[in-house]
Write a protein that binds this DNA or RNA. Structure first.
Length: 208
DNA sequence: ACTACGATTAAA
DNA sequence: TTAATCGTAGTC
């Protein structure tokens, strides 16, 4: 089964499109030579300047958000609620501060290491619920794949953290759009359907 | 310096 | 439903 790493041109496009097309791709983090990976099953688009749900609404530039102004293809990892790191894929050209939040994965490679990183006791790789609790949620998948703020501003075109096209075909009709999670404060943007999940997939953080 | 809060999660 | 937990960002 051949797979190819996504190139810079994949990321430097319309953010909503990238969010949809990331579904069915494989996110890989190489740690000490071991591949920790999962198939992307849930994403959210953050549309920068016009989006009250985005960190960069109104072109807000701070030390943290500066990452989102980088060219598409960089990672954006930030701390939320003082405890969890969240991984984003920066999209669009330089100075267009948009990104896609990776919200859930179907665990693929390095299961045992990921379970350990998640502090799961008595992990059984054949137990679907165990697998589910590994990587369904942005904070959880970052923890499982050992991704934290040290991995901010990495290039997905490099060798440590990247995304592979595994030729899994997701039909457009099998992509569900729904409102994003956890942005009740975002006024009109709260209702925008920028969360994308694979229809009927078990490995999503919650029902759309 | 002081304060409020968040693109979440696990436990109750 | 609620506590946990702390960097970020806004204000004084």
């Amino acid at each position: 089964m051949k797979s190819t790493k996504l190139k810079k041109s994949f990321y430097q496009r319309d953010t909503t499109l990238v969010a949809r097309e990331l579904l069915g791709k494989r996110l890989v983090h190489v740690v000490n030579g071991e591949r920790l990976s999962g198939i992307i099953t849930e994403t959210e688009a953050y549309l920068g300047v016009i989006d009250r749900g985005a960190h960069t609404f109104g072109n807000k530039r701070t030390k943290r958000t500066e990452t989102m102004y980088l060219p598409g293809g960089h990672s954006y990892v930030y701390l939320i609620y003082g405890m969890y790191d969240c991984l984003n894929v920066v999209t669009q050209k330089k100075d267009i501060p948009e990104a896609v939040l990776i919200r859930a994965l179907q665990p693929d490679e390095g299961l045992k290491t990921m379970a350990k990183a998640r502090k799961q006791k008595s992990f059984d790789p054949k137990n679907k619920k165990h697998l589910w609790s590994l990587t369904t949620g942005p904070g959880k998948l970052a923890q499982a794949l050992k991704i934290n703020r040290h991995h901010n501003e990495l290039l997905f075109t490099d060798e440590e953290l990247f995304i592979e096209d595994i030729k899994m075909k997701i039909n457009s009709s099998d992509i569900i759009a729904s409102p994003r999670v956890g942005i009740d404060y975002a006024q009109e943007a709260k209702h925008w359907e920028l969360r994308f999940t694979i229809r009927d997939n078990f490995f999503i953080s919650r029902k759309p």
